[in-house]
Nucleic acid binder design. Structure first.
Length: 319
DNA sequence: AACCCGGGGGT
DNA sequence: ACCCCAGGGTT
Protein backbone atom coordinates (compact mmCIF):
# COMPACT_ATOMS: atom_id res chain seq x y z
CA UNK A 1 0.00 0.00 0.00
CA UNK A 2 1.75 3.18 -1.15
CA UNK A 3 1.86 6.11 1.19
CA UNK A 4 1.67 9.63 -0.25
CA UNK A 5 4.86 11.60 -0.26
CA UNK A 6 5.29 13.75 2.87
CA UNK A 7 3.81 17.12 1.97
CA UNK A 8 6.88 18.98 3.14
CA UNK A 9 8.83 17.18 0.43
CA UNK A 10 6.36 17.98 -2.33
CA UNK A 11 7.70 21.43 -3.04
CA UNK A 12 11.26 20.14 -3.10
CA UNK A 13 10.21 17.40 -5.52
CA UNK A 14 8.59 19.95 -7.81
CA UNK A 15 11.51 22.31 -7.94
CA UNK A 16 14.04 19.50 -8.34
CA UNK A 17 12.36 17.95 -11.35
CA UNK A 18 11.33 21.24 -12.98
CA UNK A 19 14.85 22.62 -12.61
CA UNK A 20 16.29 19.45 -14.07
CA UNK A 21 13.88 19.64 -16.99
CA UNK A 22 14.70 23.30 -17.66
CA UNK A 23 18.35 22.40 -17.90
CA UNK A 24 18.42 19.02 -19.61
CA UNK A 25 15.25 18.73 -21.70
CA UNK A 26 15.70 17.85 -25.34
CA UNK A 27 14.54 20.40 -27.88
CA UNK A 28 11.77 18.37 -29.52
CA UNK A 29 9.61 19.87 -32.27
CA UNK A 30 6.29 19.23 -30.52
CA UNK A 31 7.53 21.10 -27.45
CA UNK A 32 7.72 24.30 -29.52
CA UNK A 33 4.02 24.44 -30.28
CA UNK A 34 0.64 24.42 -28.54
CA UNK A 35 -1.29 23.81 -31.76
CA UNK A 36 -3.63 20.95 -30.82
CA UNK A 37 -3.46 19.50 -34.32
CA UNK A 38 0.34 19.28 -34.22
CA UNK A 39 0.28 17.98 -30.67
CA UNK A 40 -2.20 15.29 -31.69
CA UNK A 41 -0.07 14.22 -34.66
CA UNK A 42 2.96 13.91 -32.40
CA UNK A 43 1.11 11.99 -29.71
CA UNK A 44 -0.38 9.47 -32.14
CA UNK A 45 3.00 8.94 -33.77
CA UNK A 46 4.67 8.53 -30.38
CA UNK A 47 2.38 5.66 -29.38
CA UNK A 48 4.75 2.71 -29.01
CA UNK A 49 7.29 4.46 -31.21
CA UNK A 50 10.56 6.06 -30.13
CA UNK A 51 11.18 9.78 -30.34
CA UNK A 52 14.15 9.54 -32.68
CA UNK A 53 12.17 7.68 -35.29
CA UNK A 54 9.16 9.96 -35.00
CA UNK A 55 10.98 13.27 -35.55
CA UNK A 56 11.57 12.98 -39.34
CA UNK A 57 8.12 11.46 -39.92
CA UNK A 58 6.52 14.25 -37.92
CA UNK A 59 8.06 16.92 -40.14
CA UNK A 60 7.21 15.06 -43.35
CA UNK A 61 3.63 14.48 -42.25
CA UNK A 62 3.02 18.12 -41.34
CA UNK A 63 4.63 19.27 -44.57
CA UNK A 64 2.11 17.11 -46.46
CA UNK A 65 -0.87 17.92 -44.20
CA UNK A 66 -0.13 21.30 -42.59
CA UNK A 67 -3.57 21.76 -41.04
CA UNK A 68 -6.38 19.73 -39.57
CA UNK A 69 -8.52 20.58 -42.60
CA UNK A 70 -5.86 19.44 -45.06
CA UNK A 71 -5.57 16.10 -43.29
CA UNK A 72 -9.35 15.71 -43.15
CA UNK A 73 -9.63 16.40 -46.88
CA UNK A 74 -6.76 14.20 -48.02
CA UNK A 75 -7.20 10.79 -49.64
CA UNK A 76 -6.74 8.14 -46.96
CA UNK A 77 -4.28 6.39 -49.26
CA UNK A 78 -1.97 9.39 -49.00
CA UNK A 79 -2.15 9.36 -45.21
CA UNK A 80 -1.27 5.67 -45.16
CA UNK A 81 1.62 6.32 -47.54
CA UNK A 82 3.03 9.03 -45.29
CA UNK A 83 2.83 6.61 -42.39
CA UNK A 84 5.28 4.17 -43.98
CA UNK A 85 8.01 3.15 -41.55
CA UNK A 86 6.08 4.01 -38.40
CA UNK A 87 4.19 0.75 -37.94
CA UNK A 88 0.76 0.22 -36.39
CA UNK A 89 -0.81 1.56 -39.58
CA UNK A 90 -4.28 1.75 -38.04
CA UNK A 91 -3.00 4.80 -36.20
CA UNK A 92 -2.87 6.63 -39.54
CA UNK A 93 -6.47 5.75 -40.36
CA UNK A 94 -7.68 6.69 -36.89
CA UNK A 95 -5.74 9.95 -36.96
CA UNK A 96 -7.51 11.00 -40.13
CA UNK A 97 -10.87 9.85 -38.73
CA UNK A 98 -10.25 12.08 -35.74
CA UNK A 99 -9.38 15.00 -38.02
CA UNK A 100 -12.60 14.47 -39.95
CA UNK A 101 -14.62 14.18 -36.74
CA UNK A 102 -13.22 17.45 -35.42
CA UNK A 103 -13.93 19.21 -38.72
CA UNK A 104 -17.40 17.78 -39.21
CA UNK A 105 -18.73 17.49 -35.67
CA UNK A 106 -16.86 20.24 -33.86
CA UNK A 107 -16.72 22.79 -36.67
CA UNK A 108 -12.93 22.49 -36.83
CA UNK A 109 -12.73 23.62 -33.20
CA UNK A 110 -10.50 21.18 -31.35
CA UNK A 111 -12.14 19.73 -28.20
CA UNK A 112 -10.43 20.71 -24.95
CA UNK A 113 -12.10 18.43 -22.44
CA UNK A 114 -10.46 15.10 -21.65
CA UNK A 115 -13.81 13.30 -21.79
CA UNK A 116 -14.52 14.71 -25.25
CA UNK A 117 -11.04 14.01 -26.55
CA UNK A 118 -11.31 10.49 -25.23
CA UNK A 119 -14.15 9.69 -27.64
CA UNK A 120 -12.05 10.43 -30.73
CA UNK A 121 -10.86 7.33 -32.60
CA UNK A 122 -7.33 6.32 -31.65
CA UNK A 123 -7.40 8.59 -28.58
CA UNK A 124 -7.22 6.62 -25.35
CA UNK A 125 -6.68 7.69 -21.74
CA UNK A 126 -3.06 8.67 -22.31
CA UNK A 127 -3.51 10.65 -25.51
CA UNK A 128 -6.61 12.49 -24.23
CA UNK A 129 -4.67 13.68 -21.20
CA UNK A 130 -1.59 14.51 -23.25
CA UNK A 131 -3.53 16.72 -25.68
CA UNK A 132 -5.39 18.46 -22.84
CA UNK A 133 -2.08 19.12 -21.13
CA UNK A 134 0.39 19.71 -23.96
CA UNK A 135 -1.92 21.69 -26.26
CA UNK A 136 -4.27 23.38 -23.79
CA UNK A 137 -1.95 23.47 -20.79
CA UNK A 138 -4.41 21.88 -18.39
CA UNK A 139 -3.08 20.51 -15.10
CA UNK A 140 -4.24 16.97 -15.71
CA UNK A 141 -2.52 13.73 -14.77
CA UNK A 142 -2.12 10.78 -17.15
CA UNK A 143 0.09 7.75 -17.53
CA UNK A 144 2.41 6.58 -20.24
CA UNK A 145 5.14 3.99 -19.96
CA UNK A 146 7.66 6.59 -18.72
CA UNK A 147 5.43 8.31 -16.19
CA UNK A 148 4.19 4.94 -14.96
CA UNK A 149 7.72 3.71 -14.36
CA UNK A 150 8.90 6.91 -12.66
CA UNK A 151 5.88 7.02 -10.35
CA UNK A 152 6.22 3.35 -9.50
CA UNK A 153 9.85 3.75 -8.55
CA UNK A 154 9.60 7.07 -6.74
CA UNK A 155 6.29 6.63 -4.92
CA UNK A 156 6.03 2.88 -4.46
CA UNK A 157 9.49 1.41 -4.82
CA UNK A 158 10.04 -2.03 -3.28
CA UNK A 159 6.36 -2.40 -2.34
CA UNK A 160 5.49 -2.63 -6.01
CA UNK A 161 5.65 -6.41 -6.10
CA UNK A 162 5.26 -7.61 -9.69
CA UNK A 163 3.52 -4.41 -10.67
CA UNK A 164 0.66 -5.09 -8.28
CA UNK A 165 -0.31 -1.43 -8.10
CA UNK A 166 -3.01 -0.69 -10.62
CA UNK A 167 -3.18 2.24 -13.01
CA UNK A 168 -6.18 3.62 -11.18
CA UNK A 169 -4.18 3.95 -8.00
CA UNK A 170 -1.09 5.19 -9.80
CA UNK A 171 -3.14 7.86 -11.55
CA UNK A 172 -4.53 9.10 -8.24
CA UNK A 173 -1.01 9.26 -6.91
CA UNK A 174 0.16 11.18 -9.96
CA UNK A 175 -2.76 13.61 -9.82
CA UNK A 176 -1.74 14.64 -6.30
CA UNK A 177 1.75 15.49 -7.54
CA UNK A 178 0.91 17.85 -10.43
CA UNK A 179 2.04 21.35 -9.42
CA UNK A 180 -0.83 23.80 -10.02
CA UNK A 181 -0.19 25.95 -13.06
CA UNK A 182 2.82 23.90 -14.12
CA UNK A 183 1.13 20.82 -15.53
CA UNK A 184 2.68 21.16 -18.97
CA UNK A 185 6.27 21.28 -17.71
CA UNK A 186 5.60 18.70 -15.01
CA UNK A 187 4.24 16.03 -17.32
CA UNK A 188 6.88 16.74 -19.96
CA UNK A 189 9.50 16.45 -17.23
CA UNK A 190 8.20 13.12 -15.93
CA UNK A 191 8.28 11.71 -19.44
CA UNK A 192 11.72 13.17 -20.11
CA UNK A 193 13.10 11.77 -16.88
CA UNK A 194 11.76 8.34 -17.76
CA UNK A 195 13.31 8.56 -21.21
CA UNK A 196 16.73 9.94 -20.25
CA UNK A 197 17.44 8.95 -16.64
CA UNK A 198 14.89 6.64 -15.06
CA UNK A 199 15.08 4.17 -17.93
CA UNK A 200 13.64 0.68 -17.87
CA UNK A 201 16.79 -1.43 -18.05
CA UNK A 202 19.47 0.62 -16.31
CA UNK A 203 18.30 3.73 -14.46
CA UNK A 204 20.98 6.39 -14.00
CA UNK A 205 20.21 7.07 -10.35
CA UNK A 206 23.42 9.04 -9.68
CA UNK A 207 22.21 11.84 -11.94
CA UNK A 208 18.53 11.68 -10.99
CA UNK A 209 17.06 14.82 -9.42
CA UNK A 210 14.41 12.74 -7.61
CA UNK A 211 16.89 10.46 -5.86
CA UNK A 212 16.39 12.07 -2.42
CA UNK A 213 12.69 11.18 -2.52
CA UNK A 214 12.83 7.91 -4.45
CA UNK A 215 11.71 4.77 -2.64
CA UNK A 216 13.22 2.44 -5.18
CA UNK A 217 16.59 4.16 -4.85
CA UNK A 218 16.46 4.05 -1.07
CA UNK A 219 15.63 0.35 -1.12
CA UNK A 220 18.34 -0.42 -3.66
CA UNK A 221 20.93 1.51 -1.71
CA UNK A 222 20.02 -0.43 1.43
CA UNK A 223 20.16 -3.75 -0.43
CA UNK A 224 23.54 -2.90 -1.95
CA UNK A 225 24.90 -2.08 1.44
CA UNK A 226 23.69 -5.39 2.83
CA UNK A 227 25.16 -7.22 -0.15
CA UNK A 228 28.56 -5.59 0.29
CA UNK A 229 28.48 -6.61 3.94
CA UNK A 230 27.56 -10.20 3.08
CA UNK A 231 30.24 -10.45 0.39
CA UNK A 232 32.82 -9.17 2.84
CA UNK A 233 31.73 -11.92 5.22
CA UNK A 234 32.30 -14.50 2.50
CA UNK A 235 28.65 -15.08 1.58
CA UNK A 236 27.88 -15.00 -2.12
CA UNK A 237 24.39 -14.62 -3.52
CA UNK A 238 23.10 -17.44 -5.76
CA UNK A 239 23.62 -16.87 -9.45
CA UNK A 240 20.53 -15.66 -11.26
CA UNK A 241 18.74 -18.60 -12.78
CA UNK A 242 17.63 -18.40 -16.36
CA UNK A 243 14.06 -19.48 -16.90
CA UNK A 244 13.65 -21.73 -19.91
CA UNK A 245 11.13 -20.40 -22.43
CA UNK A 246 9.79 -21.73 -25.68
CA UNK A 247 11.47 -20.14 -28.65
CA UNK A 248 9.28 -17.33 -29.91
CA UNK A 249 7.91 -17.33 -33.43
CA UNK A 250 10.11 -15.56 -35.97
CA UNK A 251 8.75 -12.20 -36.99
CA UNK A 252 9.27 -12.73 -40.72
CA UNK A 253 6.38 -14.89 -41.87
CA UNK A 254 4.15 -13.91 -38.97
CA UNK A 255 0.70 -12.49 -39.49
CA UNK A 256 1.88 -9.03 -38.54
CA UNK A 257 4.70 -9.28 -41.02
CA UNK A 258 2.37 -10.23 -43.89
CA UNK A 259 -0.01 -7.41 -43.01
CA UNK A 260 2.87 -4.97 -43.20
CA UNK A 261 4.08 -6.42 -46.52
CA UNK A 262 0.57 -6.24 -47.97
CA UNK A 263 0.20 -2.55 -47.12
CA UNK A 264 3.69 -1.91 -48.46
CA UNK A 265 2.74 -3.59 -51.74
CA UNK A 266 -0.30 -1.31 -52.05
CA UNK A 267 1.72 1.78 -51.14
CA UNK A 268 4.04 1.02 -54.03
CA UNK A 269 1.18 1.22 -56.54
CA UNK A 270 0.54 4.47 -58.37
CA UNK A 271 -2.29 6.42 -56.70
CA UNK A 272 -5.71 5.10 -57.60
CA UNK A 273 -4.63 1.78 -59.03
CA UNK A 274 -5.55 -1.63 -57.66
CA UNK A 275 -4.22 -5.17 -57.57
CA UNK A 276 -5.99 -8.43 -58.33
CA UNK A 277 -6.09 -10.64 -55.27
CA UNK A 278 -3.79 -13.21 -56.87
CA UNK A 279 -1.35 -10.47 -57.85
CA UNK A 280 -1.14 -9.38 -54.25
CA UNK A 281 -0.64 -13.01 -53.26
CA UNK A 282 2.33 -13.34 -55.59
CA UNK A 283 3.93 -10.22 -54.12
CA UNK A 284 3.61 -11.66 -50.64
CA UNK A 285 4.65 -15.24 -51.43
CA UNK A 286 6.71 -16.03 -54.55
CA UNK A 287 5.16 -19.52 -54.59
CA UNK A 288 1.61 -18.28 -54.04
CA UNK A 289 -1.00 -20.81 -55.23
CA UNK A 290 -4.73 -21.60 -55.01
CA UNK A 291 -4.17 -23.32 -51.69
CA UNK A 292 -3.11 -19.96 -50.23
CA UNK A 293 -6.26 -18.15 -51.31
CA UNK A 294 -8.35 -18.70 -48.16
CA UNK A 295 -5.47 -17.43 -46.07
CA UNK A 296 -5.07 -14.36 -48.26
CA UNK A 297 -8.79 -13.61 -48.21
CA UNK A 298 -8.72 -13.70 -44.44
CA UNK A 299 -5.74 -11.35 -44.29
CA UNK A 300 -7.34 -8.93 -46.73
CA UNK A 301 -10.71 -9.03 -44.97
CA UNK A 302 -9.10 -8.01 -41.70
CA UNK A 303 -7.14 -5.18 -43.30
CA UNK A 304 -10.36 -4.04 -44.98
CA UNK A 305 -12.14 -4.08 -41.64
CA UNK A 306 -9.32 -2.00 -40.18
CA UNK A 307 -9.81 0.61 -42.91
CA UNK A 308 -6.33 0.00 -44.29
CA UNK A 309 -7.46 -1.19 -47.71
CA UNK A 310 -10.53 -1.65 -49.89
CA UNK A 311 -11.40 -5.03 -51.37
CA UNK A 312 -13.98 -4.91 -54.14
CA UNK A 313 -14.49 -6.71 -57.46
CA UNK A 314 -11.68 -9.12 -56.52
CA UNK A 315 -9.27 -6.17 -56.45
CA UNK A 316 -7.33 -4.65 -53.60
CA UNK A 317 -6.29 -0.99 -53.21
CA UNK A 318 -5.59 1.62 -50.58
CA UNK A 319 -8.74 3.46 -49.37
C1' DA B 1 -7.62 -9.74 -18.59
C1' DA B 2 -5.70 -11.31 -22.86
C1' DC B 3 -4.70 -10.62 -27.35
C1' DC B 4 -3.70 -8.12 -31.52
C1' DC B 5 -1.47 -4.44 -33.95
C1' DG B 6 4.82 -2.79 -36.84
C1' DG B 7 9.01 -1.86 -36.96
C1' DG B 8 13.43 -0.55 -35.51
C1' DG B 9 17.00 -0.29 -32.18
C1' DG B 10 19.35 -1.77 -27.90
C1' DT B 11 21.47 -5.38 -25.04
C1' DA C 1 17.01 -14.15 -28.81
C1' DC C 2 15.19 -11.48 -26.30
C1' DC C 3 13.40 -6.50 -24.42
C1' DC C 4 11.81 -1.90 -25.14
C1' DC C 5 9.25 1.84 -27.07
C1' DA C 6 4.91 9.35 -25.30
C1' DG C 7 -1.04 3.04 -26.41
C1' DG C 8 -5.53 1.82 -28.26
C1' DG C 9 -9.15 -1.35 -29.71
C1' DT C 10 -11.43 -5.72 -29.58
C1' DT C 11 -13.08 -9.89 -27.56
Amino acid sequence: MPVPLPSERLEALHSALLAWFARYARDLPWRRTRDPYRILVSEIMLQQTQVERVIPKYHAFLAAFPTLERLAGAPTAEVIRLWAGLGYNRRAVNLQRTARTVVEEHGGDFPREVATLRRLPGVGPYTAGAVACFAFEQDVAFLDTNIRRVLRRVCIGPDDVAGAVRDRELLALGAALVPPGRGWAWNQALIELGALVCTAASPACPRCPLRPDCRAYAARAAADEALVGAMAAGVHPPAARRIAERPSEPYAGSRRWYRGRAIDALRALSPGSALLLAELGLRLKPDYGPADEPWLRGLVADLDRDGLLVFENERVRLP
